[in-house]
């Protein structure tokens, strides 16, 4: 039975992806384009050439960070919806260090990454503290702080760190940018992979990780077992925010180079979606992030080839999560389980 449970947890997202694509193709057909051409363009756009693959990996990098951020907190049973704000706070301090302190090169990069993680963690500490000490709804608080962070970032690029007439900051100097290792993919992608692997190791191979997951599964039981529930909740917030903040730094140093309007917009909620489709497994979550990035990169090529707007990929993404979570809930229903067991018995009888 355990075996079939694992199978189902892989099957549900796959079936969901297929269903989402079927609906996506129907929309494309309704818009008057050929779904076959569109899908081909989508595929070549995302994976057709080495350069396109590197673009996909580069687009996946920030998504991996925000999805790991959502994944880590939810493993401890708290819903951190503030990944976007934490990501922004990381990139803001990173922008300051990279463009205003005069530091360049490797020391600047290391300091930027560290400061980004610290700032992201501090920003996430606010909902964490309010949750632990005031019992407050961490979801609303973390979302409110997204808006505050986004407005603060706007102050940064329109006022405080503005460079020139256009509302944007100065670009990160060449020598402080992250090295490109493969096409457009930078060391930022490697950092994302390492962070994912570390989280995986922490959650499943350390006793602290075990306790953190125990808190996430059942806070009351964990409390009775003497686990420091509050400590873990606060810790999960800080670490999760630090992951997002690190991502913000890596994105600024590796891809965007300057803060402008729209930077990181939507990354937080996307991260939550990916973590849920990946069913809170860090490695699966990273795979989902790469898949989402491929959809985005490919959709640009699709738009050029067929005229279908790129936002159709957002619909497909949203449908994947609509179906995945509904599907996962469905297979947990008692009626579904009995039906499955009956099927099993019939097979054995035959």
């Amino acid at each position: 039975m355990k075996h079939s449970g694992k199978l189902i947890s892989v099957l549900v997202p796959l079936v969901s992806v297929m269903m989402a694509f079927v609906i996506g193709c129907a929309i494309i057909a309704i818009l008057g384009a050929s779904p076959v051409t569109a899908l081909q363009a989508l595929w070549t756009g995302a994976f057709g050439t080495a350069r396109n693959i590197s673009t996909t990996l580069s687009r996946a990098t920030p998504l991996i960070f925000t999805s790991l951020c959502a994944c880590f907190a939810y493993r401890c049973g708290v819903f951190n919806l503030g990944g976007e704000g934490q990501f922004m706070m990381g990139s803001i301090i990173c922008c300051y260090i990279a463009t205003r302190t005069g530091l360049t090169g490797l020391p600047a990069i290391l300091l930027c990454l560290l400061a980004g993680a610290v700032f992201g963690g501090l920003w996430a500490m606010i909902p964490g503290i309010l949750k632990v000490f005031r019992g407050q709804n961490e979801m609303i608080i973390s979302i409110m702080l997204n808006y505050v962070a986004s407005l603060f970032m706007s102050v940064i690029y329109t006022n405080w760190l503005r460079d020139g007439t256009v509302p944007q900051t100065a670009a990160v100097p060449d020598e402080t940018r992250l090295t490109r290792i493969f096409g457009r993919a930078t060391t930022g992608f490697l950092i994302a992979l390492v962070v994912g692997a570390l989280i995986y190791y922490f959650l499943f191979n350390t006793s602290m990780g075990f306790q953190l997951r125990a808190v996430g599964l059942n806070m009351t039981t964990a409390e009775y077992n003497g686990f420091a529930v509050k400590k873990y909740i606060l810790l999960s917030f800080i670490v999760s925010g630090a992951i997002a903040g690190l991502g913000g730094s890596a994105e600024l140093l590796g891809t965007q180079y300057r803060l402008i309007s729209g930077f990181a917009s939507g990354y937080g909620f996307d991260g939550v979606a990916m973590a849920l489709i990946g069913q809170l497994h860090p490695l699966a979550t990273m795979a989902v992030a790469i898949f989402f990035a491929a959809l985005r990169v490919g959709s640009t090529a699709m738009q050029t080839a067929t005229g279908v707007p790129t936002s159709v990929s957002d619909i497909i993404q949203a449908l994947v999560i609509v179906f995945t979570v509904a599907g996962l809930a469905m297979v947990k229903l008692p009626s579904f389980k009995t039906a499955l067991a009956r099927l099993h018995m019939k097979k054995e009888a035959a």
């Binding site: 819903f79 919806l81 979801m139 909620f269 939550v272 979606a273 849920l276 949203a318 999560i321 609509v322 979570v325 509904a326 996962l328 809930a329 469905m330 947990k332 229903l333």
Partner: peptide
């Protein structure tokens, strides 16, 4: 389907 409400609200 008894899906988790907060998760589905987010979706």
């Amino acid at each position: 389907l008894c899906a988790e409400q907060t998760v589905y609200g987010m979706i």
